[in-house]
Simulated scan of single mutants.
Amino acid sequence: MDRYQAMATFIRVVDTGSFSAAARQLGVGQPAVSKTVAQLEARLQVSLLIRSTHGLTPTEAGQSFYERARNAIQEADEAELAAKGAGAGLSGRLRVSAATTFARLHIIPKLPRFLAEHPHLTVEIILDDRMIDLVAEGVDISLRLGTLADSTAVARKIATGRRSVLATPAYLKRAETLRSPADLANHEAIIYSQLPSAWSFLREGAVVSVSVSGRLKVSAAEGLRAAVLADMGLTIASDWMFAPELESGAVVRVLEAWFLPTIDLWAVFPAGRMMTAKARKFADFVENIITVADKPYI
């Protein structure tokens, strides 16, 4: 039995909570995972997992072994990377989760450079606007926009972006004039269901909150983009979401004298794990491409 592989398999079982989920992430059959854990228990002569109808839970010995094995493997991976030297690049698989629109516009088009720098690395991107369970999904790093709900998360702020009221010139041409947030009552707002329908503005120290309404409500950023670009109304969004259109003039900002709360981009790492070199390098890569000084929409 390969001790390193057995430890890695056991760690994945504990992280995912089941043999089947671990098998899917490892790309092997469930019987192989079960057999590896059984052999590990036989070698150690101790029960590592409590098996029940509710899933798998580590025993006291299993939890202790899990924590030490996880640290040992992470230290070994870091040592191997250090021995190879920075010029050798990264290797293995990197699982990244990110909001669909943000990744499509800003991350995926830049990936060729990152992959060229690390030819032995495989990147798997999970496109999902939900806040997924990083441990259960086997994610190394998640790119999240907004406020972090989990105060225990291991996170690093990558950048802060501007938020604006945005619309196409075609919509504004046929709509009533916008001079202040109060005028939004006369406009068709495209509502993003993940944000409040009351928009708060700041000007000269005063906060103005305006309730907006519209005939269309969407649950994903891609739908919001499509509706705005179809001249259906105006919306509030991060400038990141409409970066190409803001640069070309296909979408414009309105009410620019009134400020909206900014939005943060975070790199979030699985709680309880050491940040891997692969995840750290990817966070550096994202920070570099997002904060390029010559982008007028950042």
Rank of each mutant, 00 (worst) to 15 (best):
A175P: 13
I108Q: 03
G161S: 14
P196K: 01
E176A: 14
L229A: 01
R163V: 04
V268G: 10
T36E: 05
T147D: 09
L134Q: 11
S248M: 01
D77C: 03
E247D: 10
T100R: 11
A21I: 05
P109Q: 13
A153C: 09
T101C: 06
A72H: 07
T177N: 05
R163Y: 01
L115R: 14
R93V: 15
T291D: 11
D264Y: 10
P31V: 09
L143A: 10
A6G: 13
T177I: 11
S18M: 02
L26K: 13
L81G: 12
F19C: 02
G146Y: 15
I290T: 05
V139G: 05
A38I: 04
E176R: 13
V37D: 00
Y4I: 15
F282N: 05
A22H: 04
Y4M: 12
T9I: 15
L224V: 10
P196D: 02
V96T: 06
L145V: 08
K157H: 04
F114N: 12
V228L: 15
A243C: 11
G272T: 06
A103G: 13
F242V: 02
G92F: 12
T57S: 06
F10A: 03
E256W: 00
A69H: 03
Q5R: 12
H120M: 07
G92I: 14
R12M: 09
I289T: 01
I125M: 11
S200H: 08
A116L: 07
T160N: 04
W240Q: 08
S238A: 12
G138A: 12
Y66H: 08
V254Q: 13
E80N: 05
S200G: 04
V14K: 06
F10L: 07
A257N: 13
T160G: 05
A116E: 12
E78N: 08
L166E: 03
G233R: 07
Q45H: 00
F269G: 10
H120K: 13
I290F: 06
R225M: 00
V251H: 13
A267I: 06
E247Q: 14
D294H: 11
A155H: 11
R12N: 04
A88S: 14
E117Y: 05
A116S: 10
I11A: 00
A220T: 11
R225K: 01
A267W: 03
Q30C: 01
G62W: 06
V252K: 15
Q194P: 03
A99P: 08
P244F: 13
D264T: 05
W258P: 01
E41T: 00
I236M: 00
R51V: 13
G146V: 08
T101R: 15
S64T: 13
K295F: 02
